[in-house]
C-alpha cells in the first residue's frame, strides 16, 4: 500500500514495529473519533501484518512478535468490524480454504494457532477445529467446509499414528483426492510424512503458508 497519509503510515509502522501503546490509541482515534472508514483501517492493519509476516520469514521476527501482532489485530478488529456496513460480495476474495486441527490424543495448540494466524493474514480462509480432534470429526468437517488444504498438527510422538489414521480415514471416505494434506509439529520430519501418507510437512508457519500457496497456484 503506497497511497498512505502520515497518520496511516504511523499506524502501519507502529503495528509492524510492535509499538502497541502507540498503535492501539491511534487505531481507536481513527475509528471512533475521526470516523474513518473501518475497511480502510483494516486494510492498513493487513499491510502491517504483511510486514510482520515478511520479517518472520526473513528471521527478524519470531513467535513473540507474531503473538503480539495477532493480539493487536484482534483488538482493532473487534472495534472495526461492527462498524462495517458491508454489502454482500465486498469481502476480499480468499486464496483458498484450509481446515486445521490437532489430531486425536494430542492437546497441544501453540503451533497450530500460529499457523492459523499466519494463513489468515496471508489471505486464506481458515477453519480451526481445535485440539484432540477425532478422525470422524475431520471427515465431517472436510465434507462440510470443503477445504483445499487440510493441516494436521501434533506435538507428541503418538500423533504419528493419529495422523496416519486420520489420513487413512480421509482416503477411505473418498476425500483424499479432493484435498492436499500437510502435517506439522515438534517431532515431524520426512520420515513421519512418509509414514503418515501426508503430501508434505512443514517445520514452521512460514512453510505452512508456502505449501498452501504453492498448492493454490499462488506465488509464495
Amino acid at each position: 500500500m503506497t497511497d498512505m497519509n502520515d497518520e496511516e503510515r504511523q499506524l502501519v509502522d507502529s503495528l509492524a514495529e510492535m509499538r502497541e501503546d502507540e498503535a492501539l490509541p491511534l487505531a481507536n482515534k481513527m475509528l471512533l473519533v475521526d470516523n474513518k472508514d473501518p475497511i480502510r483501517v483494516l486494510e492498513l492493519c493487513r499491510t502491517a501484518m504483511d510486514l510482520v509476516g515478511k520479517r518472520f520469514e526473513e528471521g527478524e521476527y519470531f513467535l513473540p512478535e507474531l503473538v503480539l501482532a495477532g493480539e493487536m489485530l484482534e483488538t482493532i478488529g473487534a472495534i472495526a468490524k461492527p462498524l462495517i456496513k458491508s454489502k454482500p460480495g465486498e469481502e476480499p476474495k480468499k486464496l483458498g480454504k484450509v481446515l486445521i486441527g490437532t489430531v486425536h490424543g494430542d492437546l497441544h495448540d501453540i503451533g497450530k494457532n500460529i499457523v492459523t494466524f499466519m494463513l489468515d493474514i496471508n489471505g486464506f480462509e481458515v477453519k480451526d477445529i481445535g485440539i484432540d480432534v477425532p478422525v470422524q470429526t475431520f471427515i465431517e468437517e472436510i465434507a462440510k467446509f470443503q477445504p483445499d488444504v487440510v493441516g494436521l498438527s501434533g506435538f507428541l510422538t503418538l500423533a504419528f499414528d493419529s495422523m496416519k489414521e486420520t489420513i487413512d480415514a480421509i482416503a477411505a471416505a473418498g476425500l483424499r483426492d479432493k484435498v492436499k494434506i500437510m502435517i506439522g509439529g515438534g517431532q515431524i520430519d520426512e520420515t513421519v510424512r512418509n509414514y503418515t501418507g501426508a503430501d508434505a510437512f512443514g517445520v514452521n508457519a512460514v512453510e505452512a503458508v508456502a505449501l498452501s500457496k504453492a498448492w493454490m497456484g499462488v506465488a509464495a
Binding site: M18, E20, P64, V67, L68, E71, I110
Partner: peptide, 11 residues
C-alpha cells in the same frame, strides 16, 4: 503461559 509470556516481552 506461552501467550502471556510472549506478550510480556513487550508489555
Amino acid at each position: 503461559g506461552a501467550r502471556g509470556m510472549m506478550t510480556d516481552l513487550f508489555r
